[in-house]
Design a protein around this nucleic acid. Structure first.
Lengths: 113, 113
DNA sequence: AGTCAGCATAGCTCATTGGCTATGCATGGA
DNA sequence: TCCATGCATAGCCAATGAGCTATGCTGACT
């Protein structure tokens, strides 16, 4: 066993990963402009190359990007599917909220009779 | 001027606020179970009352909750609408991704002729 | 008036983390 | 073979932040 995979862990990793502005900017660029090398990303990131590499590593670990090696450069691209847990979470919150609202409506309706 | 309101600031605040598990748990409880007092929230939060108050303050500042004073207790409730910027952001990322995909399809289609 | 209860604030500590420079490692070209 | 280039890793530092205890403040009850 050892492993027990909880859904909230995925959400936690996503929120934590996207909480940093530099990291979110990198991910946004990859979403907007498609695949890019580390050098190209560094050029307009406003931080040093090692920092960019580090952030890309964290994004990769969260499943938000994937890398492809070609000679001595590494190409990164966004993995949009990784956002699913985040979308699910918001949907879930909205659902709970709506449910309570419906319950209240039900109650009021029954009280009305 | 001093003030210039950027959209990304709202996203930043949301991501940062929801990145903390304790805070997210508090918000989730308010979504699931509706309005609760600080005492009720503290009872099952696993952290001390001052910590809960602090987190609620941060959630409030991000617009995710609102408070209502009644006697000597404070009732907090979730403000689901505050999640809008987060939903918009994910939609935007998905859109960019899809656009590039469409462009590629267009290109292939034109090459095919 | 005095006391307790509920919540907020203050002040502290420790762990985390985002940034840097320096360096390592592999690839491509002369 | 030797050097340059592209990226990753290591090690450090300063800032941030989440937790705690102690205390302050206000409302309720006797």
């Amino acid at each position: 066993m050892g492993y027990e995979y909880r859904m909230s862990d995925a959400q936690d990793a996503l929120f934590k990963t996207l909480a940093d502005p530099t990291r979110r900017a990198l991910f946004e660029r990859l979403c907007r402009e498609g695949e890019k090398t580390v050098g190209a990303l560094t050029a307009r990131a406003g931080v040093s190359q090692p920092v960019v590499s580090k952030h890309l590593g964290i994004l990769k670990q969260a499943g938000l990007v994937r890398d492809r090696h070609e000679g001595r450069q590494t190409h990164y691209s966004a993995q949009l599917g990784a956002l699913a847990p985040l979308i699910d979470w918001t949907r879930e919150m909205a659902h709970f909220w709506q449910s309570r609202f419906d319950d209240l409506e039900d109650l009021l309706k029954r009280m009305d009779q």
